[in-house]
């Protein structure tokens, strides 16, 4: 019985292995994970804003392609899209990032995430009261000025909690970059842990990386939830005052 327990323990939680793996996970893997998450999110947010505007367009010829884009990218497994774009673009002669794996990975993950970001933005923009828009247009502000000075700043407040939640998903999605090939210094947390796990034939390095992922994601999740509650609370009291 105790031998069985010991084996389970040493398979996942070998303290020596965890301690041995942590420095590289933290000094090489963590910065790479964050770097890739930020790049992918930047691409995702920029594209997501555009697509969200398209989703809200009055023109069917704009709205339908945007809808299709969102449905397709949300409907495919991440791993498939990362392979198709990350390996497919250079194979097809579109080596837009040269030999830089991160470029393709950030683009692939960014494209996937842009579909999710677009839906978040769409919901955020739609949550801005119609009256705010009418008031802005009544002063002579153009559609674009209203978007920029009223809808985006107001929508952004409501959108920030779900946006941050999505960022957590991006952090996790970046582990797929290993599919596209990484040099030693490019490896992010998962790749480093995977290598160490294989070389030592023990899963504890993966546990080490898992702990770092959790240290990133769990506090963020709770912070976002608290934040979201505060915004919702503020909105409902405000609504009572307004009426």
């Amino acid at each position: 019985m105790s031998e069985g327990f010991h084996r389970i323990f040493s398979t996942f939680f070998d303290p020596g292995m965890i301690v041995q793996a942590l420095p590289e996970v933290l000094t090489v893997g963590l910065p790479n994970t964050l770097l890739l998450s930020l790049f992918a999110s930047a691409i995702g947010i920029a594209l997501g804003l555009l697509v969200a505007a398209g989703l809200l367009s009055g023109y069917t010829s704009v709205r339908l392609p945007c809808r299709g884009y969102v449905d397709i990218l949300r409907g495919l497994p991440h791993i498939l899209t990362v392979y198709l774009i990350g390996q497919g673009l250079p194979l097809a002669g579109l080596a837009i990032f040269g030999g830089n794996t991160y470029g393709y990975a950030a683009l692939a993950i960014g494209l996937i995430e842009s579909a999710y970001f677009a839906e978040i933005f769409r919901a955020g923009f739609q949550s801005v009261e119609r009256g705010q828009v009418e008031a802005a247009r009544s002063t002579g502000m153009t559609r674009l000025q209203t978007m920029r000075h009223i809808i985006i700043p107001q929508g952004a407040r409501r959108v920030l909690p779900p946006l941050t939640g999505q960022f957590i998903l991006v952090i996790k999605a970046t582990s797929l970059v290993y599919l596209l090939g990484l040099t030693a210094s490019q490896r992010e947390m998962f790749a480093i842990a995977q290598d160490a796990a294989i070389n030592n034939a023990n899963l504890s390095p993966l546990t080490a990386a898992g702990l770092v992922y959790l240290a990133l994601t769990i506090p963020t999740t709770y912070a976002v939830n608290a934040w979201d509650r505060r915004i919702r609370g503020a909105r409902s009291t405000h609504a009572v005052e307004g009426d």
Binding site: E134, S138, M141, Q145, H149, H238
Partner: peptide, 27 residues
């Protein structure tokens, strides 16, 4: 043509001063 609404529709993210001066600056 200026318009005043039943439910005010002040820009909730802006100060009183910005509410009044925004269109002057942008339009």
């Amino acid at each position: 043509v200026g318009m005043v609404f039943q439910h005010f529709h002040l820009f909730s993210h802006l100060s009183v001063l910005d509410n009044v001066s925004l269109a002057l600056r942008k339009v």
